[in-house]
Structure formats: structure tokens, C-alpha cells
Amino acid sequence: MLEEKIKQLKEETIKKISEVANLEQLRELEIYFLGRKGELTKILRTLGDLSIEERAKAGDLANKIKNELTLEIQKARQNLGEKTDGSSEKEWIDVTAVKEKEEFGHLHPISIVQYELEDIFTSMGFMVLDGPELESDYYNFEALNIPSWHPARDMQDTFYVEGENLLMRTQTSSMQVRAMEKYGAPLRVVVPGRCFRNEATDVRHEHTFYQLEGFMVGKDISVANLKAVLEVVAKKLYGDDTKVKLRPKFYPFVEPGINGEVTCFLCKGKGCRVCKNTGWLEIFGAGLIHPNVLKFGKIDSKKWSGFAFGFGLTRLAMLKYEIDDVRLLCGGDLRFLKQF
């Protein structure tokens, strides 16, 4: 009975569609049959009186017919010359408007820079290690060839904790000897992580910052090797035309001790605000691992040699995003963090 009605309606509609003369009439027809208060809907309203089974059956049929008719009307529209390339009036929307969007979250800028570097190094066979932030004097200083009397300790104001001889690590180099003890030679490691210096904070100084330490122990590892690896990293970070400049700098745990600068990525070496007009950015400390440190790591310095280097991740992130106040990084202000 109901099925009959629906089928009848279908045939009637198709017939009328074939008789339509213009788009205006077609539109009226569409509303009459398929509209919200149209004939098909009227029929479906009566479904409530039926058994569940009948209801389902009729419902399915009605949907099927509705789809068929919609398609027929569309075809008829085309036949009547309606534009389908979107140039018709009714296709127009305000494309400059925006709808409320689902918000995305953001990784911390340090994480972004850290992961980028980790990926570069793992691609070269370095493993990524993590270490304790609350560290012993032994691993942070002693085993790095910095005995208690060493003036190099002045270079690093250290947070000590009450009671034991423990400190907040001042450098990720503290993982060198731990890694050597655990893995022996040969060895390729990077250690990204948080470091601490007991100093007052301002725009340029922060007691909490991030470093990435890297080191490699192998046969005949040389200064030339160090230079090559650092160049690759600099190029990955800042582009193929980046150059690396090495010069001596004293760190007790390396010999020779080296300081590295790379071509300023912003001005490409011409000199700008970021590089203070030198064309160079001081990016890393490095050198060949001191034989004493290898000894602390139980590695025979007659058989093996190695290089080590350290980047300031905080500094890299600040350069990359032109962040001029280091305190923003640990400040927890979402207006800042949502920019990355």
C-alpha cells in the first residue's frame, strides 16, 4: 500500500521533470516533491503507524527513491543549461569568512629543535641517551677531568643540594663517562637535556637551559673527523652553503679544546643583528676527548680516541625563532607556546 504510493510518486515526478521548461519550474518541482514539507515527506510521516518491519522496509524504499529523484533533477538542471563549474549564483559563498576551528596543540620550541637534531644524529648512527638531572660531583666534574680545585669550576655556577655531594648537572657532558662505562668503545652518542647554572635570570641568562652533548669513540678519531661531522650537522641545520670555523678554547675534558662557529644563517655571513655583525654564530664547544676522561670511562686511550661536542639547544631555538627573551621558554605562557 505505502510502497505503491511511493512508487507512484516517483513516476509522477519523473514525468513532470521531463516536462519542465526552465530552471525556475524545476526548482518549484523539487520543493514540491522532495522539500521539507514535500510529498515524499508527507508519505513518510505516516510510517509511525506501521510495524517495525514494515517501517524499515518502507523507509529503505523511500530513501532509495529520494536518491534516484535527486539525481534526475540534477540531470535535468544540466539539460536546462545550469552551470556546473561553480559559477552559478547559488554556489557563491564568502570565502574570506572563517568558521570556528578545532584548535591544534603545539610542541615546545625546544622539543622541536631537539628532535630535529636527534634525527640528524641517529641518521649518522649516533644513539640518543638520557641521563639524570640531579647528578653526582663525580660524573659532572671529577670524571670529566675537573677536580675540585680546578679553576674551570668557576666557569659554571653550580646548584648544590643539601646534604649529599650532589648537584644539578651543569652540562650534558656528565653523561660521557656513564655512557663509556655502560657501552665501552666504539661508541657514538648524543645526549640532549636540561642543564642548570646558579645565576640570576634576565633577558639573556637563564638558570635552566638545554644542551645537546655528542661524542664518538673509535679508531683514529681525529680533529679532521670532528670538523667533518660538525660541518654536516651545520649544513643540515642551516643549509648547504653553511661553513664551520674552529678555534681553540679550553675545556678540561677535551684536548685539544675547540670552539666552533657557523656562518650566520640569517645574513649568510654578511653581518647582521643576530650575529652582532661578525657573520658568525658561536654554536658549539668541542674537542678530542681527554685521555683522562677515557680512562675514567675505562676505555684504553692507547687503542681508542674520540671527539666530543656540545650545542646549546636553548640558543639554537632562540636563534631559529628569533626569541629575544630566554625566560619565555620556561615561562609557561600559552600566548608564546602556541606560536610553534
Binding site: 679532521a224 670538523k227 660541518e231
Partner: peptide, 24 residues
């Protein structure tokens, strides 16, 4: 090395056994 000048050294990639790093 320092008096000779690090600039004057040719960089050279280390030659090592190809071993995949331990995964963290």
C-alpha cells in the same frame, strides 16, 4: 693544531663499521 690553524685542516668523515644505533 691551533698554531697551524684549524681552518687549514681538511675535514674528513670518520670511517666506522655500519651499525644501527640502539633505539631509545
Amino acid at each position: 693544531a691551533r698554531i697551524y690553524g684549524y681552518d687549514n685542516l681538511e675535514p674528513k668523515m670518520p670511517e666506522v663499521l655500519m651499525v644501527p644505533p640502539e633505539v631509545n
